[in-house]
Design a protein around this nucleic acid. Structure first.
Lengths: 192, 192
DNA sequence: GGATGTATACTGACCAGTGAATATACACAC
DNA sequence: GTGTGTATATTCACTGGTCAGTATACATCC
């Protein structure tokens, strides 16, 4: 989504882009390395020249999603008028809008970590954890401008819980209304 | 967990039990039908005598988990002293206790539906949706004793969002503290 | 002897990863 | 500026293994 340029992508980036598209649309285990290579327009052997294994590719896919995802949340926060609670609710509203697209598939970080649950130390799980922590820390730093630090941390976690809950529930029921409900709950908690 | 008896299980039930154990521990796609058959102490051919396909087995696994899971929540709610908010928080506390066991693997319904995201009409996804709706409806009916119906529905959804968010976040970070934080947030929302 | 249940052994498809060869490009020598 | 060496980058064809599902036959019970 973000960072689209007209420059020709490096082979490595083309592979990651193809992998991301397929992994996000169908899941990690449902997508073969052959399929990624074909989507990227090259052979599997070339893919294996740029990545040691499928696991490496999965990790690289999540790592490239980290920063753009966080930036998107920050942009949505900044662009929503009102107080902090309104701005946080704005993130949920934007997510609800995204979730209305039939191709929306929830949070790639959560979904990947669920798929790889039987491989506890997997680099992709480490990347997912790091991303979620980064979002929580950013939220916490924002809330610290209104509230005492220990209260800010607790609230940030509660917002994150509502956010990830909404990802899961909306994905299951395919009802973006839950995303708005989660946003309202977050705003209520922030206004206590 | 629940419903353990000393009666000899039927072959079908032994298969479902073995499947449930493996699916929950390692995930749907990571477990082969051969592995399920071996764990159940019979051959794959026998398994296929009792189930038409692996997909059927997955659906059967989730369907057998529906009622015991709901009953567990209801028991935890009933056994916690205090007002409604306290009782709801009790559910989260009990879940936090479960999550401290290193083998805890989150919510099987959510995890299965994530793994099967690329098969939208899959019977297991239908079963997962039905289960989550049943929990929400039960919670809603409980809250209706204190609040007007439309308010009860909204609150039930917010509690569910926190619950499923906690499942996801605790599974990712392996920190049951989030479960307690979610419970506190739920209680706060219920006390508004 | 028919219904029910179980076992052995197999098929066909798929899939992660590899071996060996080839193409491209830039270096430096002469 | 032509030849030669070395890195990078890419391809085709293959292997070893796994897995869902099946053909067929054997047992047991009514």
């Amino acid at each position: 989504m973000a960072g689209m340029t007209t420059t020709t992508l490096s082979t490595r980036d083309r592979i990651i882009r193809a992998a991301g598209k397929l992994f996000h649309a169908e899941g990690i285990r449902a997508v073969s390395v052959d399929a990624v290579a074909e989507t990227a327009g090259l052979t599997k052997r070339t893919l294996y020249y740029h990545f040691r294994s499928k696991d490496d590719l999965i990790a690289a896919y999540l790592e490239t999603r980290d920063q753009p995802n966080l930036l998107l949340f920050q942009r949505w926060f900044a662009e929503t008028p009102g107080d902090t609670a309104d701005k946080v609710e704005g993130i949920f509203r934007q997510l609800a809008a995204s979730a209305r697209h039939p191709k929306w598939k929830g949070c790639g970080f959560l979904r990947t970590s669920v798929e790889l649950i039987n491989l506890p130390g997997h680099p992709a799980i480490v990347a997912a954890r790091a991303h979620k922590k980064r979002v929580e820390d950013w939220l916490c730093s924002v809330l610290e401008q209104d509230k005492p630090p220990e209260h800010a941390r607790r609230l940030a976690r509660q917002v994150i819980l509502l956010l990830d809950g909404a990802f899961a529930v909306v994905l299951l029921h395919r009802d973006p209304g839950y995303m708005e409900t989660a946003g309202e709950a977050a705003a209520e908690l922030l206004r206590q």
